[in-house]
Simulated scan of single mutants.
Amino acid sequence: MSRPRILLTAPPRTGKTTVIRRLAELLRKADVPVRGFLSDELRERGRRVGFTVEEFGGEKVVMAHASWVSGPRIGQYGVNVPAFERVALPAMDRALATKGAVALIDEIGPMELLSPAFMPRCEALFAANVPIVATVHQRSRPALQARLEAELITVTPHNRDDLPATLGRLLSP
C-alpha cells in the first residue's frame, strides 16, 4: 500500500508550521515516531529577524538572519546553508531509517533550496515508502508538486485548526 505524501501550502503566516507542530504532537501521543524538522521565525522585540531550523527532538540552529552580511541571501536574510544542512539532512536521513516513522518537513522553500543536497533528500523521501507531510512555499509550489508527486492541501484560516487531527488520522497506523 502506498503511504500518504502530502504537501501543505499557503501564503506566509497562515499557519503551515503550526499545523506541522500540532500534527507532530498528535502523532507522538499515538506513539508514532516523528522525524524531520521545523523551520520557525526568529523574533526580536516583536520583529522577525530570521529563521531557525530544529530537528524534532534534536538540535536547533539559526539558519537565516537579517544581520548576516556574508553568504547567500534570500530577501533581507543572510542564509547559513551549512547550519541548515547540519540539522535538516540528518533529520531527513533518520526519517528514512526509522521503522514506522512519519516524515514532517517544514519547509521546502527558497532558503532550504540553497542547499544542493536538500532537494535530492526530499526526492528520496517522497520516493520511499515513508508517509510524509511537507510544507512548501506558495511561490515554489507548482514546480515542487510536479517533482514530488504528492497530494496538495492549501492551509486556510478555515481548515488550519482541523488539519492536524485530519492528517493524524490519515498517518496513524
Score class of each variant (00 low, 15 high):
17 T>Y: 03
99 K>C: 01
121 R>D: 02
11 P>A: 15
93 D>P: 00
74 I>A: 03
167 L>T: 04
95 A>K: 02
101 A>C: 08
106 D>G: 10
34 V>A: 00
170 L>Q: 15
98 T>S: 00
63 M>V: 11
116 P>W: 05
67 S>Y: 07
126 F>G: 12
109 G>V: 05
53 V>K: 01
153 I>N: 08
66 A>K: 12
6 I>E: 09
126 F>K: 13
81 V>P: 04
161 D>H: 09
64 A>D: 06
158 H>F: 14
100 G>S: 10
33 P>M: 13
109 G>H: 03
86 R>C: 01
93 D>M: 04
73 R>M: 05
21 R>S: 13
72 P>N: 08
6 I>R: 07
27 L>H: 04
22 R>H: 15
69 V>N: 10
70 S>D: 15
123 E>Y: 04
52 T>M: 09
2 S>Y: 06
27 L>W: 02
34 V>K: 00
165 A>T: 08
132 I>H: 02
11 P>R: 13
61 V>E: 11
37 F>R: 03
134 A>I: 07
49 V>G: 11
153 I>G: 08
55 E>C: 02
25 E>M: 07
105 I>G: 00
116 P>G: 08
137 H>E: 14
10 A>I: 10
165 A>F: 04
19 V>E: 06
78 G>T: 08
27 L>C: 02
12 P>T: 10
112 E>M: 07
133 V>W: 00
64 A>F: 02
129 N>H: 14
39 S>I: 11
107 E>Q: 12
114 L>W: 08
21 R>V: 09
164 P>S: 11
76 Q>P: 09
84 F>A: 02
142 P>L: 09
147 R>K: 15
150 A>R: 02
3 R>D: 07
19 V>Y: 12
110 P>K: 15
132 I>Y: 01
170 L>E: 13
157 P>F: 14
99 K>N: 04
108 I>L: 06
57 G>C: 07
111 M>Y: 03
73 R>Q: 15
8 L>M: 06
130 V>P: 01
132 I>N: 00
37 F>W: 00
49 V>E: 10
4 P>T: 07
35 R>W: 00
115 S>D: 08
141 R>D: 10
173 P>I: 14
82 P>I: 06
143 A>F: 12
155 V>K: 05
99 K>T: 04
67 S>N: 13
33 P>G: 14
128 A>E: 09
8 L>Q: 11
88 A>K: 01
123 E>K: 14
36 G>Y: 03
157 P>V: 13
126 F>A: 09
65 H>G: 09
115 S>P: 06
93 D>R: 12
81 V>M: 03
85 E>R: 04
50 G>R: 06
86 R>W: 04
87 V>W: 01
42 L>Y: 03
113 L>Q: 06
29 K>H: 11
140 S>H: 10
34 V>N: 01
156 T>E: 11
72 P>G: 05
136 V>S: 13
4 P>I: 12
79 V>K: 02
